[in-house]
Design a protein around this nucleic acid. Structure first.
Lengths: 121, 121
DNA sequence: GCAACATATGAACAGTTGCTCACATATTCA
DNA sequence: TGAATATGTGAGCAACTGTTCATATGTTGC
């Protein structure tokens, strides 16, 4: 295949569609924004975390409650809650030994709804 | 730690919060639904696929156009388009040698918007 | 202080993912 | 038919992910 730039192989479509590609390129958000968006959806891309978020939408719960609800170990839940907290999707408050987690974002429900709308097509 | 059922360790919170856990459990969607939801978001959880979807929101494009736009190999893009198509997020039409891809879902924009809303907090 | 409890965390391990590379398939045109 | 073009795909691989296990941290009540 013909080399048309210094790094990657190209096809002739690029030349034909050059204006379209340039237009789309100019409208793309910043690389960093798209990366952050992917990182956010990556957090949603695990069924354990989805379950935790869905549960916390119903009620504030402590770590072992969630573990019992999902029939998983406390350790596994704790690890996932850490991921969710880093993504600023959940927050927690401490009451003695017990740490209660709750949702920290009003978009979670909307994101779930849109996702479900796609699945139920 | 005390064994309180046949499979997993439990804490005493479960007993105290038993009613809350049961209430939440009764309100949870089907296991399968939550799994499918996670699978969908997993598709959104990669910056290459996010970029492709964002690009296709602007214009229908062929494989090599997308490859040129994102400065990636045709093969890498083709692999990812396959994933997006299996998730029913994109569709394609063939015109001679060239295969044009476009969005196949009206929820993509809404999902992106909600994701961005969370990021820009 | 110490025993019991609730949670957090690091290491390890198996399973998954996204890219590259080589090659297959499909279409056009001379 | 055969060369050129555009796309699809399987194998291989380095990197990442989610769980388990052992253990650490922090809190309560005696």
């Amino acid at each position: 295949m013909v080399k048309k730039n210094d790094s990657l192989e190209r096809c002739f479509c690029d030349v034909i569609h050059e204006d379209v590609v340039r237009k789309v390129k100019s409208k793309m958000p910043k690389e960093e924004t798209l990366y952050d968006l992917a990182e956010l959806f990556k957090v949603f891309g695990d069924s354990t975390r989805i379950k935790i978020l869905w549960a916390l939408e119903e009620a504030e719960m402590c770590v072992c409650d969630i573990a019992a609800l999902l029939n998983m170990t406390q350790s596994a839940i704790s690890h996932q809650l850490r991921v969710l907290k880093q993504a600023k999707l959940v927050k927690n408050r401490k009451e003695g030994k017990v740490v209660y987690y709750s949702l920290d974002d009003e978009h979670v429900r909307a994101i779930f709804q849109q996702g479900l709308a796609h699945i139920n097509e």
